[in-house]
C-alpha cells in the first residue's frame, strides 16, 4: 500500500466487505425473529382452536350425561314406579283373599318392601334430576340437599348465601348444584367430618362456591397419582364442569384440618353467549 489511492481503495473494499457481512448478519437475525413470530402466532391460533373444540366436546359430554340422567329418572319414575304402585295394589288385594295368618304376615312384609322400594325409586330419581332446581332455583335446591344431609344426623351442616341467584342461566345453576352435591358427598364419604359448611356468594359477575369440611383432608396431587382404576370420577366431573364454564376450582387444606374447596366463576363471559 503506501500510495494514498491504494489506501482509499483498500478502505472502500474493506468497508464494503464488512458492511456486506453485517448486512447478512442482520438479515439473518431479522429473518429468524420474523419467522419465529409467525410460527408462534400460528401455533397460538391452533391452540385456541383446539381448546375451544375441547370445550365444546366437554359441554357435549356433560349435556349428554344430564340428558341420560333425565331419561333414567323419568323411566324410573314412570315405568318402575308405576309398576310398583300396581304391585302394591295387588298385594293389598291379595291380603283380602288370604285365609291364613302366615300368608297375611308375608303379604304385609311384601307391602312394606314395595313401599320401601317406591320410596327409594323416588329418592333416586329425584337425586338424578332435582326437580327443585328447575322449579325453584339453585338456593332452594341446595337447601333441600342440606336438609337431607341434616336429617341423616351424621354431620352438622350449614348453608349460607349472599347475592342474587334468581337470574342464573340454567346450565350454570345445574353445574353449581352438581358441584355442590359432589363436594358434599365427598366430604360425607371420605372426610369423616363433623361439620360441613357451604357458602355461595355473588358479587356482580363474580360467583364463588365454597364447601368446607373439618375432616381428614387430601392432596390433589396424590389423587392424580392414583391409577385410573382406583380413581373416582367425582373430582374429574367437577373439573369438567368448572372448565366448561371457564371457571377455576381449588382445594385448599382447611386449618386446623379438613378441606376447603372453592369454585370461582366469572359470569360476565357467559352473559353474551
Amino acid at each position: 500500500m503506501g500510495q494514498p489511492t491504494e489506501e482509499i481503495n483498500f478502505l472502500l473494499l474493506f468497508l464494503t466487505g464488512t458492511l456486506g457481512l453485517l448486512f447478512l448478519a442482520s438479515t439473518l437475525i431479522l429473518f429468524v425473529f420474523i419467522n419465529q413470530k409467525r410460527m408462534l402466532s400460528q401455533r397460538n391460533k391452533l391452540q385456541a382452536l383446539k381448546s375451544s373444540y375441547q370445550q365444546e366436546m366437554l359441554k357435549a359430554a356433560i349435556d349428554a350425561q344430564e340428558k341420560e340422567r333425565k331419561r333414567i329418572a323419568e323411566d324410573l319414575h314412570d315405568e318402575v314406579g308405576a309398576v310398583l304402585s300396581l304391585a302394591k295394589l295387588n298385594a293389598n288385594r291379595a291380603n283380602e283373599y288370604s285365609a291364613n295368618e302366615e300368608g297375611r304376615r308375608l303379604n304385609k312384609d311384601t307391602i312394606q318392601f314395595i313401599d320401601d322400594t317406591i320410596n327409594n325409586v323416588r329418592r333416586i330419581s329425584k337425586d338424578l334430576l332435582p326437580p327443585t332446581l328447575e322449579e325453584f332455583g339453585l338456593i332452594k335446591a341446595i337447601d333441600e340437599l342440606v336438609a337431607k344431609v341434616r336429617a341423616s344426623n351424621i354431620v352438622r351442616i350449614k348453608f349460607e348465601y349472599r347475592g342474587e341467584f334468581n337470574n342464573l342461566y340454567p346450565e350454570i345453576e345445574l353445574a353449581l348444584y352438581r358441584i355442590a352435591q359432589e363436594l358434599v358427598n365427598n366430604a360425607l364419604k371420605h372426610a369423616d367430618a363433623g361439620e360441613i359448611e357451604i357458602y355461595l356468594e355473588r358479587n356482580e359477575n363474580h360467583l364463588t362456591l365454597k364447601v368446607l369440611d373439618d375432616g381428614s383432608g387430601f392432596k390433589v396431587e396424590e389423587i392424580d397419582r392414583k391409577s385410573t382404576f382406583e380413581k373416582g370420577i367425582g373430582l374429574k366431573n367437577i373439573h369438567s364442569r368448572v372448565s366448561m364454564l371457564d371457571g377455576e376450582i381449588n382445594y385448599f387444606p382447611n386449618l386446623p384440618k379438613g378441606t376447603a374447596a372453592t369454585v370461582e366463576l366469572d359470569l360476565s363471559t357467559r352473559i353474551h353467549k
Partner: peptide, 23 residues
C-alpha cells in the same frame, strides 16, 4: 416471542460482532 428470549439477543450480539469483524 424472541424479544423476551435472552439467548436470542446474546446470539445476535455474537453474530453481529464476529461476522462484522471477520474481515
Amino acid at each position: 416471542g424472541l424479544e423476551k428470549d435472552a439467548m436470542f439477543w446474546f446470539n445476535g450480539g455474537l453474530l453481529v460482532y464476529f461476522a462484522g469483524s471477520l474481515l
